[in-house]
Nucleic acid binder design. Sequence first.
DNA 1: AATGAATGAGACTTCATTCAT
DNA 2: GATGAATGAAGTCTCATTCAT
Lengths: 200, 200, 200, 200
Amino acid sequence: MPSPAAGRPARADARKNQDALLAAARTVFARSGVDAPAREIAAEGGVGVGTLYRNFPTRSDLVAAVFTTEIDATAAAAAEFLATEAPGAALEHWIARFTRFVATKQGLSAALRSGDPAFDALPGYFAEKLGPAMRSLLDAAEASGDVRPGVDPLDLLQAVGDLSHRAPSADGSPNAMVRLLLDGLRTREADAATQRPASS
Amino acid sequence: MPSPAAGRPARADARKNQDALLAAARTVFARSGVDAPAREIAAEGGVGVGTLYRNFPTRSDLVAAVFTTEIDATAAAAAEFLATEAPGAALEHWIARFTRFVATKQGLSAALRSGDPAFDALPGYFAEKLGPAMRSLLDAAEASGDVRPGVDPLDLLQAVGDLSHRAPSADGSPNAMVRLLLDGLRTREADAATQRPASS
Amino acid sequence: MPSPAAGRPARADARKNQDALLAAARTVFARSGVDAPAREIAAEGGVGVGTLYRNFPTRSDLVAAVFTTEIDATAAAAAEFLATEAPGAALEHWIARFTRFVATKQGLSAALRSGDPAFDALPGYFAEKLGPAMRSLLDAAEASGDVRPGVDPLDLLQAVGDLSHRAPSADGSPNAMVRLLLDGLRTREADAATQRPASS
Amino acid sequence: MPSPAAGRPARADARKNQDALLAAARTVFARSGVDAPAREIAAEGGVGVGTLYRNFPTRSDLVAAVFTTEIDATAAAAAEFLATEAPGAALEHWIARFTRFVATKQGLSAALRSGDPAFDALPGYFAEKLGPAMRSLLDAAEASGDVRPGVDPLDLLQAVGDLSHRAPSADGSPNAMVRLLLDGLRTREADAATQRPASS
DNA sequence: AATGAATGAGACTTCATTCAT
DNA sequence: GATGAATGAAGTCTCATTCAT
């Protein structure tokens, strides 16, 4: 064991608990919504409620932390997909991932609107992190001709988010309305053909 | 059985309370979500909790009643608008109204998914009442050339509903994404021009 | 219809309700104990709660009335049995009947001890009515040699009552401990024979 | 897992509360019956309702615990009495004690019959613990000639229990009917004379 | 620092009782 | 007089949160 840099072990422990709680909260929020009992989250994380309260004094702190964490992870996935897939596929996959992220947040949008100051920074964080991520995917897809230009990344994100809201969606793929929206996003080569013929 | 022809006396009062409770629930649901304390609803309606429980034994009974009532009112508005406005305006106004109805239902979609059997009939009722209403508005608007044909009323309703979800919207008009969706609904005269560069 | 004596019909109605309530209370007390909801009793009697309260302002009034009524009926049965059966059988049948009366009064003894003044007269009424009834049955049975003499009727009644307390008893016959007590009551002809032989 | 040898710290407190609640329940059950408000029991024990619910999630858990505890204490008293008193006195005292235990259980027999599965094991526990205790006392008393042989301990226990049911009994001694029963239990020297007319 | 026991506010629900019709 | 709707007190139970160990 080549102890790296004589760090204080207590820190490691604290960090471990924080991570465990974050993961637990993610799980529980998805299962029972953001109003799930604190005890359920602590139990899922394998710690006592006291520890939960020490690390996240208020529920909104925890919610915000989970939200932030997931935004980070989701944003990071964009670069990863772009690096390993064709632009169209990357965009599609990433939206599917974003969709699952949203679906996981039972009751979050209601919480956001609650006026709790702990949430004030969240929309900004969302825009700051996911806006550029979406932008990069759209740029690539526009360049490759997969989607038409002129779409605002945040508008799209919001729309997809809203449409994903009620859809736990069987296999993890976006629900019908999202697919509809995405279809509309593609370039209109074929679309035009569909629309031109003799209308009924 | 004394006086044969006499109607049921106390009924008038009971009915009044029921209406008061329905109105109160509508108000409170919009303000605090469908999970608002029973006492708050009773107080808003100016009755005791006991009365609330007598008239609506379970919370889902009340939710379902409010939902049903509003669906009826919303559906009825369609005919009214059609009779007094031009097709395009009628459609637009009605959707704005529908949008407000949805925005009022904080947490309803989550409740719907709760599996409570009291909600089983609701989606069907929604489709049965609002489908034809939307259909009639779309027909008129299509006939007058305001919107393009081929739109499924229920799909549209669902999409608008989902997009309205998080938007109490300042002045009562639909939010940006809904407007976007509605723009897409209009006839593509201009749209087509934009998309088909060389139409010659 | 030879109207008997031009009585006021209202009276008949009132009496009918009272009887219906008494019967209903008997049924419900047996089913759910003397603390059963007032509404359940009113419903069983086919009247509104208001009528219940008009006829029996307090629960104890009703309990006392039922109790009194049944004491009367039980006392009356003694003479009837004596007139139609042999003394031993009459005694036995009557005790079985008394046993059922007691078993029917779930929680009555607790209520009796509650200190409610409405119950003050009950023990006296019990003694006054059932004491003589039991006395007459015992006298006959003693005379016929079926039971040994020297048993106090009220003591016996109380003991049987207490022992019947926890025994809904399958077919309506007294439970094991009561039977034991009654066995002890019989003349010891056979008993002596049983006891004399070689003790273990 | 830090300090290995250290016991569980907070346990002492928890145990103390549990005991306090058990004692409180015993007191309150005796005073107000087994249906006494949860809050009353918690208050008597000097704890919050939450603690009551934590330690005894359902009322039947508490009832069963009190019952079990008292059965244990009552059973233990048998050996104690046997060791310090003459067999006849030990039996008498123990029955008096048992009588008080039963008198304390206002409404318990009704609860037992409620069908709550939490009570299923109680009759068995009663028999298992008190049967042998009574047996040992009877054996000693039979050997010393104080009581006649052939009495089933559980039958006797049940009979005494039922007869004690309604008798809080002034000075703590069994009520009249129980005394009657116990008189019948004593050896029949005199009794036999009375019963066997021509013994010669 | 972590733990989980204790607390008690507050939500739910049931009924006894009153009273307008 | 009868009815049953309304009331609200009272009891149950569930957590969020604190705090001793």
